[in-house]
Structures are given as structure tokens and as C-alpha cells.
């Protein structure tokens, strides 16, 4: 905190002070995630709430412990670890044992975020990094899905009633439409991860974020539109185009990923043009992984792969400097060319 002030407070008065900081932005994200959590508790029972709370507490403790160990300033107040905790819980099945969730939190906070320097320095989304690690380490537990409406036990979820998700190998991955109706998929009455099932609640949260100016609509719109167009053009299993597209859009973690994970400030491009490229890339990869990959769901890996490409996207989509006209651009180009030819000679 004190360091930042030393670096930034340079201009002479008058100053406009803004109440917007990391903390208020993260608080808005948390508020936007509440509706999805409510839907999760309704469909999967109080275990969803407990898992989310445990994940948040674990993330905060790991963040505090790591920064204390390395004698760094404490950053718990900015709530970014809490957002990571909620998002990681949201992309795990409700039946996942709590200790596995805590291992995922450790990986997300310590390995993905803090080892690279803390908030603003991580190169991939911490929550998705944690999910990828859990997916590698505990593939069975991470793909056991509780049936909605049948609440699983609070302590042990071993006796939970489990079933397939709409995107699993039984259904859409093999081109077969699931039993759930489109309305069920929209409301969230399907199997899946804690926070990803209810498209309507996620949409409400996403619209809240856009209305509050926390995120720009570029990434989510480009992401979802790309998936929509591709699935509309190439329906699988001889299904009706529109029905297939709606099932693809509402199934899996598309809305959660598009609104809350792909838009992470640290791991998305800075310019509006770059954001659109990023969103389209995420959409393409999602559909490719769903259609051709071994995993039924591709949103998390699509976002992770595009996270790694952000530096290149930022380089390619640098906005023009203010006052830099077309003639100046051509002049600069000609000068560069001349210099190159001169060097070649």
C-alpha cells in the first residue's frame, strides 16, 4: 500500500480521488457470484455453501501464510484470494472431498499466484490453474457429479446419488441430446460443478458486472457468440441446429467461464480489440475440445490456453497513440523500410 503511494502520487493538484480499488471491484465480483451460489444451494444442498466457504477460508489462510513467511505486506484486504476461493469451489463437483478442495486452493494461491509474485503477476487464472491440477490429480473425484435435487451429505459425500452431466460421454460428447429440457439447463436443474449449472443466475451476475462497469462486455460476448456460431453451423449427431446450439451454450461452464474467468484483469488482454481476439480464441478452443478432445468440457482449458497467449495478443493489438495520424503511420513505415534496406546493403 505505502509503496504504491510513493510511486504514483506525482502530479500537482487538483486531484480526483476515486473510491474504486481492487477491494471494491472484487466485492462486486463476489456480489455477482451470489445468485449462482443460491442456485447451487437450492439444487445441491448446503454442502455447496460449506464447500465454498471452506475454499474461501483456505485461500485467505494460504495467502496470509505465504506472505507472512516471506515477510511481504499482507494483501488479504483486497479480497482477490476470496474470489479465487469462490471460483475454484464453483468449478468443482459438490461431492469433491473438502481436503481435495483445499489442495486445489493451495495450488491456486501458492503455486499459481504467489510464487509468480502475487496479484497482478500470475500468468494464468489461479482458480482454473487449481482446477487443472485437481483434474490431473484426482480425475475420478473431479468427474463424479451429484444429481440435482438429491442433497449430498455434509461431512461425507460418499453416499451421494450421482449421474451424468449434459456434456458427459453419455450425451453431447457423443452427439446425443441429454434428457434434461432446455428450461432445466437454463435454470440449472442438471448435474455439474457447483457454480456452473445455473445459466440464468450466472447471466444475472454477468449483467450486474457489466452494468457496474467492472468488466467490459467484449470478452464474454465474443466468447459466447463464437461458440454459438460454431455450434449452429456444425451441429453433431444429426440434431436440429438451434436446439443443439442452445444445449451447447447452456451446458458446461460456458457462462461461468465467459463472465467470471476469461474476464480476469490480470490474465486477459488490455485493449478492446485484444479482448475480442481473446474471446474468439476461447470460443474456438472450447468448441474444438468439446468436439474433438478427450475431455467432454473444454471451457477451462480453452481459457487457460488463451491466458498463455495474452502477451502475444497484447503485442499485436496495441492501440494507436493519441494524435498519431494515418500519414504519420505511413511515414514511419517508409522510414522503417528504408532503414531496413540500408542495413541490408
Amino acid at each position: 500500500m505505502s509503496n504504491e503511494n510513493k510511486l504514483l502520487g506525482v502530479a500537482s493538484s487538483p486531484h480526483v480521488s476515486s473510491p474504486i480499488g481492487t477491494r471494491s471491484l472484487m466485492l462486486d465480483v463476489l456480489i455477482a457470484l451470489v445468485p449462482a451460489l443460491c442456485a447451487a444451494v437450492y439444487f445441491f444442498g448446503p454442502r455447496a455453501l460449506i464447500a465454498t466457504i471452506i475454499s474461501v477460508v483456505a485461500c485467505e489462510i494460504f495467502e496470509m501464510g505465504y506472505r507472512k513467511l516471506l515477510h511481504k505486506t499482507q494483501t488479504n484486504g483486497d479480497l482477490s484470494a476470496a474470489v479465487t476461493g469462490v471460483l475454484l469451489a464453483f468449478v468443482c463437483p459438490v461431492t469433491l472431498p473438502y481436503w481435495m478442495l483445499i489442495i486445489g486452493d493451495f495450488f491456486a494461491i501458492v503455486v499459481v499466484k504467489q510464487l509468480f509474485g502475487g496479484l497482478g503477476k500470475n500468468f494464468i487464472n489461479p482458480a482454473l490453474g487449481g482446477r487443472a491440477f485437481l483434474m490431473l490429480s484426482y480425475p475420478v473425484a473431479m468427474t463424479t457429479w451429484a444429481v440435482p435435487g438429491k442433497w449430498s451429505g455434509l461431512i461425507s459425500a460418499a453416499d451421494a446419488v450421482t449421474g451424468a452431466t449434459p456434456l458427459s460421454v453419455d450425451f453431447m460428447h457423443s452427439g446425443v441430446l441429454p434428457e434434461a429440457s432446455i428450461m432445466d439447463m437454463f435454470v440449472g436443474n442438471v448435474g455439474g460443478c457447483i457454480g456452473e449449472v445455473s445459466a440464468v443466475m450466472l447471466l444475472a451476475g454477468g449483467i450486474y458486472l457489466i452494468a457496474r462497469g467492472v468488466i467490459r462486455p467484449n470478452i464474454p460476448v465474443a466468447f459466447i457468440a463464437t461458440v454459438a456460431v460454431l455450434t449452429f453451423i456444425f451441429p453433431q449427431g444429426g440434431n436440429d441446429r438451434v436446439t443443439w446450439m442452445l444445449y451447447e451454450l447452456l451446458g458446461g461452464g460456458l457462462f461461468l467461464g465467459a463472465f467470471f474467468m476469461a474476464t480476469d484483469y490480470v490474465t486477459s488482454p488490455t485493449s478492446p480489440k485484444g479482448e475480442i481476439v481473446f474471446g474468439i480464441g476461447c470460443g474456438l478452443l472450447t468448441v474444438f475440445i468439446r468436439y474433438f478432445g478427450g475431455y467432454p468440457e473444454g471451457v477451462s482449458y480453452a481459457i487457460l490456453i488463451m491466458n498463455v497467449c495474452v502477451w502475444f495478443i497484447d503485442q499485436a493489438t496495441k492501440p494507436a497513440r493519441f494524435g498519431f495520424t494515418k500519414e504519420m503511420k505511413e511515414k514511419a513505415k517508409a522510414a522503417k523500410k528504408a532503414a531496413k534496406e540500408g542495413a541490408a546493403k
Binding site: 489442495i103 503455486v111 491440477f133 490431473l136 490429480s137 484426482y138 480425475p139
Partner: peptide, 13 residues
């Protein structure tokens, strides 16, 4: 045991 540690990613870590 977290299988991920036995995989290449764990080796790098």
C-alpha cells in the same frame, strides 16, 4: 496422493 505430482507438471514444480 495427488497424481499430478507424478506427471511431468509435478516434475517441473
Amino acid at each position: 496422493g495427488a497424481l499430478g505430482i507424478s506427471l511431468p507438471v509435478g516434475g517441473f514444480l
